[in-house]
């Protein structure tokens, strides 16, 4: 490298970082936004009470989304499909990928419950035709069916399908589709903040050596190992 980059020491950076002011009420708003957009009504209500953060919208208006989310997260996929169709049948009609996701989740729930006959019937009658229309769907179907190959499904290489995070993911996609149909903001701002940080740090890497946050969960400042004093 012809032009050596300037290095900012951890002490110097931390000193400046200490002076950066972030209002707690702003962070609270960010969290409230997450609760409202993602449809966590109870949490939003309690948060309003505990932190005095305004919700900006009537929480009752998110009840429909909350019900759909709860159905998905408790594994009642058929019910959630009915609820979405009651809200607006076009949501699933116009979004074949999302509808597939729900069907896949439905299959996962059948497998989880040990309803093997039902699962096989559902897979051949409902899902297999969809795999023909889309290669990506086919991969997903095969992945899901491979759960059946293991007596103890937690040993399966695709065991993450059974985790609650899978339900949460499906629920969030469905939630975003409902929001979109209502012409509302579909993405909470918190993940944007995280992405913004990763993007900005990467850009600044080209100009400067400075303590960066590599692990967002701990948010620890780490000096890149080029210089260790």
């Amino acid at each position: 490298m012809s032009n050596p980059k300037r290095t900012v020491s951890k002490e110097e950076w931390e000193k400046k970082l200490k002076q950066v002011k972030i209002n707690k009420s702003d962070i609270n708003k960010l969290i409230m936004n997450y609760f409202v957009v993602e449809g966590y009504k109870d949490a939003a209500e309690m948060f309003q009470k505990e932190s005095n953060t305004p919700t900006l919208i009537n929480l009752e208006s998110i009840t429909d989304r909350v019900n759909v989310r709860n159905s998905v997260q408790s594994g009642e996929i058929e019910k959630s499909i009915e609820q979405v169709n009651d809200l607006n049948p076009e949501i699933l009609d116009n979004n074949s990928k999302l509808y597939f996701r729900l069907q896949q989740q439905q299959l996962i729930e059948m497998i989880r419950a040990g309803k093997l006959d039902e699962a096989l019937q559902f897979a051949t009658e409902e899902l297999a035709p969809r795999g023909e229309e889309n290669k990506e769907f086919l991969d997903e179907i095969e992945k899901t069916m491979s759960l059946l190959a293991f007596a103890d499904m937690s040993d399966s290489p695709v065991s993450q399908l059974l985790e609650s995070s899978q339900r949460q993911k499906t629920a969030s996609e469905l939630n975003a589709a409902i929001l979109e149909s209502q012409c509302q903001e579909t993405a909470p701002k918190l993940p944007t903040l995280l992405k913004m940080l990763m993007w900005a740090q990467k850009r600044l890497d080209e100009k400067l050596i400075y303590p960066r946050i590599n692990d967002l969960q701990t948010a620890e400042l780490v000096v890149p190992n080029q210089e260790k004093k």
């Binding site: 970082l17 903040l193 995280l194 913004m196 850009r203």
Partner: peptide, 14 residues
């Protein structure tokens, strides 16, 4: 909060 602060500082530096 650390993430918010770091973002602010990195973006300012940029």
């Amino acid at each position: 909060e650390q993430i918010a602060k770091q973002s602010k500082m990195v973006i300012q530096a940029l």
